[in-house]
Design a binder for these strands. Structure first.
Lengths: 319, 319
DNA sequence: CTGAAAGCGCTAACAG
DNA sequence: CTGTTAGCGCTTTCAG
């Protein structure tokens, strides 16, 4: 016991004893066993991070933010890649909870969380922070952006640049996708522009989806002169399709994305986008989570909305 | 005990008892505690993954490969972002070992591993697989590519495209950096081309380093007509600098990178590169690691070299 | 200030 | 096939 205390720097150990203990520990190359410690303290100092795609630059940036925030607090991150698959996510969350992580940060692939593993964790008062997406029926902390504003901001910008036939390559049916779509519609309505149904095409999260969707739009009798894309990878794919068809960006078609992923500035046509401070999302989520973990009593769920801002680059600049 | 066995599917439990146990477990919403289990089995089913930068697309892809491989084996990944900082890496590796991860995959920020935490883990026979970089003095498994060949392949390609004044924006003093530099020099020597010292400029891993380094090269009295860059982000930065200076890629200066990161095809000028199958590196490393973990006796260190291949895109195509 | 007693939740080994 | 005994390495509690 004396040794345990000495090693953890308890104050009720005499200086002399501590020194002796530390010395001997070094001699023996002793390392405390965290598993055993966790068993008794019921704290693992691990947090689970569940994201849909490590390779999507947005989530990589979020993960980095989380990592940067918790490193000095000596928490470690158990990471799960759900591949946008709700079942994988369920399995992973169950695993994480069986491992007794102290808390969870989740960008969920679920549309509806009412019967999910997350729900049951929340019931058991395990600290959870949702990021980016907010599945229905989960009363947890949330850190993200106002997606409807992103959609409106981007669409308004296209309108201001003189676009009149504005299409949207939409994302999936999760809150980010539906929110941005709503913003797009709101902006069109406000400016009394038609919202043609064929101008909204379904996409997915990545550049190949954007590429395919754009090809569809280009086939229309009257193709759009501006496209708001669900996110930057989708926009990059869309631009590729436009250029391949022989048209010019932004002259023939202006394109804007969302997310301001790190390489957007290096793309064929530097991409206009709505920045959503990805690493701040990660840092904030980590901060909230740690606060929950270390609080005596559960905190009431917070919704933290991060600032978003328009970034104008060449892909929409039609002077 | 019967319950423990029933839950883990031991065969020496009657069908009837198992059913009863399972039923009751469900009723009670019972979940086994992995921490307690780990304490006695001495296996955590966690593997540590230490990488220098989550946001670098190459490492993100590696991580995804690892994740994809271990998910069905129900290992989980504890991830550490060393930020290319050797001290952070040391701390993280110590932590991971204190947590009793079953094994470690490390892309080390160390040049020399002789006195490192890794070294001491290897002594204690903890399974470790190095990836991408091979610090001196660590006798562990390795999965990566032949960096010298990457350098030679890329440089030869520039020569074949008619470049005669070939520069290299080199990486740091780790094996990837030095190997690629060696390959560059070898290729120049073989073709009897001068290796001007001012044509090798120091860089780092990222696009801003490439941008700065390229500016240096452009200031030379006789700037290069071809540049082999340490990796794709560096190349992307270099291209940005070239275009900003009013020159053309590839006509005035051809540029080639290495790594074939996912967005290379979407860049301003689609980037020629040497592919190194990043996700295969991750998958292979995970496979080797799991084999080590599950082997009764330590396996002799393997060096697995993944195929690399030249990918020619516009940035070097000067017909 | 130091240390003895008890137990965290589980499983290996073995006895019935 | 089922269950008992012992103990994984640590910390909480409390007595000296």
């Amino acid at each position: 016991m004396t040794i345990s205390k000495a090693l953890r720097g308890h104050r009720d150990i005499s200086e002399e004893t501590r020194k002796r203990v530390l010395k001997r520990a070094r001699e023996l190359d002793y390392r405390p066993n965290w598993v055993a410690r966790s068993l008794v303290t019921r704290r693992t100092h691990m947090i689970g991070l569940v994201i849909p795609d490590l390779m999507h630059s947005f989530f990589a940036e979020v993960a980095k933010g989380v990592s940067r925030m918790v490193e000095p607090l000596s928490y470690q991150i158990v990471i799960s890649n759900s591949e946008e698959n709700a079942e994988t996510e369920e399995r992973q969350i169950e695993m994480l909870s069986a491992r007794n992580v102290d808390g969870l940060i989740v960008a969920s692939a679920h549309v509806n969380g009412r019967r999910s593993a997350m729900r049951s964790l929340l019931k058991r008062k395990l600290p959870c922070v949702l990021i980016d997406r907010m599945p229905a029926g989960l009363d947890a902390h949330f850190v993200g952006v106002k997606d409807e504003e992103i959609g409106a901001l981007a669409t308004n910008h296209l309108i201001e640049q003189g676009c009149r036939r504005i299409a949207h390559i939409r994302g999936p049916a999760i809150t980010t996708g539906t929110g941005r779509l709503r913003g797009y519609r709101r902006a069109l309505a406000r400016h009394r522009l038609e919202a043609l149904p064929e101008y909204v095409v379904s996409g997915w999260h990545n550049d190949s989806a954007g590429y395919e969707a754009m090809i569809q739009l280009l086939r229309l009798d009257c193709p759009p002169d501006g496209v708001f894309c669900y996110n930057d990878p989708v926009a990059a794919g869309a631009i590729k399709a436009i250029l391949e068809s022989g048209l010019d960006v932004p002259k023939d078609i202006a394109v804007i994305g969302a997310g301001n992923v790190h390489y957007s500035d290096l793309l064929r046509i530097p991409l206009s986008t709505v920045d959503q401070s990805s690493s701040v999302i990660g840092e904030t989520a980590a901060e909230v989570l740690v606060r929950c973990i270390e609080a005596k009593t559960p905190l009431p769920p917070q919704r933290i909305l991060i600032r978003r801002r328009l970034i104008v680059r060449d892909s929409t600049l039609r002077r």
